[in-house]
Computed example of a mutant assay.
Amino acid sequence: MGNSALKAHLETAQKTGVFQLTGKGLSEFPEDLQKLAGNLRTIDLSNNKIEILPPLMGKFSILKSLALNNNKLTALPEELCKLKKLETLHLNGNHLTQLPAAFGQLSALKTLSLSGNQLRTVPTQLCSLRHLDVVDLSRNKIQSVPDTVEDLQAIELNLNQNQISQISVKISHCPRLKVLRLEENCLDLSMLPQSILSDSQISLLAVEGNLFEIKKLRELEGYDKVCRKMLLVNFFFFLLSCS
């Protein structure tokens, strides 16, 4: 991309607070963006070839949304964790194996998408995010869900297409979890905590494509309870759509 084209994008971003430059083959984060660090609310650099995020990421003090889908990131800088206003972070389709130790300092984060990376565990840092609503960890290499998950505040957790064969019973303690997606994993029915059905807030449980037949799940005690909760939730949203 030429300097004149980048300059035009920067001028537009200065007026709108939005910088979007996708699918342009960028190999580096544009350093000139730091001139707008106090202006930008949204940055979208998806579908490029960016391998490294520079420390200057921490300067975007009012940034609310950051999208870096389908790049070549293998790690995130600790400075990213200084973005106290960040609400939405999309990092799908990269090569991330872990999150920065200070990731839990992203106190305003509501939506986190990490689908299609190289994560092998559910990052414990997520349990420090008190306003987190939606977490997408699908298409990674996660093999188990640990006890620490009980502190997760998310409403929806997507773990589809991993390698999960074990789930801590403490997942049923998640205070706000309503939607749990576990499709296409390595779960045997005996490894699915029955407390998810009987003693949790979960109203939508998606488990197709595991090592058991769904009809066997329907025979478990508590399955009807989940179905009733699902019907109530659907009825609630139907009433909202009619109002």
Rank of each mutant, 00 (worst) to 15 (best):
Q163S: 09
A108W: 11
I164S: 01
L96G: 04
T74S: 09
L239V: 10
S46D: 04
N48V: 12
L6G: 05
L204Y: 05
L99N: 01
I52S: 05
L26R: 03
S27Q: 09
F237I: 08
A101C: 02
I50Q: 03
V145Q: 01
L129M: 06
E51Q: 11
A75M: 14
H131A: 04
G25R: 10
C227N: 03
A5W: 05
L240R: 15
M1C: 11
L73V: 10
T111Y: 13
M1T: 12
M191Q: 14
P30K: 01
A154G: 10
E87C: 07
L137D: 01
S107F: 15
S203I: 03
E31R: 06
K178L: 10
K85H: 12
T88C: 07
I164A: 00
E51Y: 07
K24A: 09
K85V: 00
S200M: 10
R41W: 00
Q161Y: 14
L26D: 07
L132A: 06
L91V: 03
R41E: 15
V226W: 01
Q34E: 15
Q161L: 11
A5S: 10
V233P: 00
L157P: 07
S61F: 13
T12N: 11
E87W: 05
N92L: 05
N92S: 11
V122C: 03
S27A: 12
A8I: 09
L83R: 01
N234E: 14
E208K: 12
E51G: 07
P54Q: 03
L187S: 02
L240E: 13
L83V: 01
L63W: 01
I164K: 00
G38R: 15
E28A: 08
E156Y: 03
N92I: 05
I167Y: 00
I171T: 04
N117R: 08
I155T: 13
L129S: 04
